[in-house]
Amino acid sequence: MDITINAVGFELDKDQSDLINKKLERIKYAEDLLVDVLFRVKDNKKYIFDTTLNFRWGMTAHVSTEDYEFASGLNKLVDMLDQKIKKEKDKIQQKT
Score class of each variant (00 low, 15 high):
61 A>V: 09
50 D>G: 08
76 K>R: 13
70 F>A: 08
57 W>M: 04
80 M>G: 09
58 G>H: 07
69 E>R: 13
56 R>I: 10
82 D>A: 06
83 Q>A: 11
59 M>Q: 09
85 I>H: 04
68 Y>R: 08
74 L>C: 09
72 S>V: 07
73 G>E: 13
64 S>D: 05
80 M>N: 03
59 M>W: 03
68 Y>S: 13
77 L>C: 02
51 T>K: 00
51 T>A: 08
62 H>P: 04
72 S>H: 09
51 T>S: 13
64 S>N: 07
61 A>G: 04
58 G>P: 08
71 A>F: 08
60 T>N: 14
72 S>W: 08
73 G>D: 15
83 Q>H: 10
55 F>Q: 01
83 Q>N: 12
83 Q>T: 14
59 M>T: 15
48 I>C: 05
62 H>C: 06
72 S>D: 11
56 R>F: 05
76 K>V: 08
57 W>H: 09
70 F>T: 09
65 T>S: 13
82 D>C: 06
60 T>D: 04
73 G>M: 14
52 T>G: 06
63 V>N: 00
81 L>A: 05
51 T>P: 05
51 T>H: 00
82 D>Y: 07
74 L>Q: 02
51 T>I: 07
83 Q>M: 12
55 F>L: 14
59 M>G: 06
83 Q>R: 14
70 F>W: 06
80 M>S: 05
85 I>N: 02
79 D>I: 11
56 R>S: 08
52 T>E: 15
79 D>V: 10
73 G>H: 15
61 A>D: 12
51 T>W: 06
84 K>C: 10
62 H>V: 12
51 T>R: 06
77 L>N: 07
67 D>S: 11
50 D>Q: 01
51 T>L: 03
69 E>I: 01
61 A>E: 14
65 T>R: 05
60 T>H: 05
83 Q>S: 09
60 T>P: 01
74 L>E: 03
55 F>C: 01
59 M>C: 11
85 I>F: 02
85 I>K: 06
72 S>Q: 14
61 A>Y: 13
63 V>F: 00
84 K>D: 03
52 T>L: 12
50 D>R: 05
71 A>Q: 14
71 A>V: 11
70 F>S: 05
75 N>E: 15
83 Q>D: 12
55 F>A: 08
59 M>N: 09
77 L>Y: 03
85 I>S: 04
53 L>E: 00
81 L>C: 04
75 N>V: 15
50 D>M: 00
51 T>C: 14
76 K>Q: 12
65 T>N: 11
68 Y>D: 13
85 I>D: 00
58 G>W: 08
65 T>M: 06
85 I>G: 00
72 S>T: 13
58 G>T: 03
51 T>E: 00
68 Y>T: 08
64 S>F: 02
81 L>Y: 07
67 D>V: 05
50 D>N: 12
69 E>L: 08
61 A>S: 15
75 N>A: 15
71 A>I: 05
65 T>W: 02
57 W>T: 07
81 L>N: 03
60 T>M: 08
65 T>A: 02
65 T>E: 07
74 L>H: 01
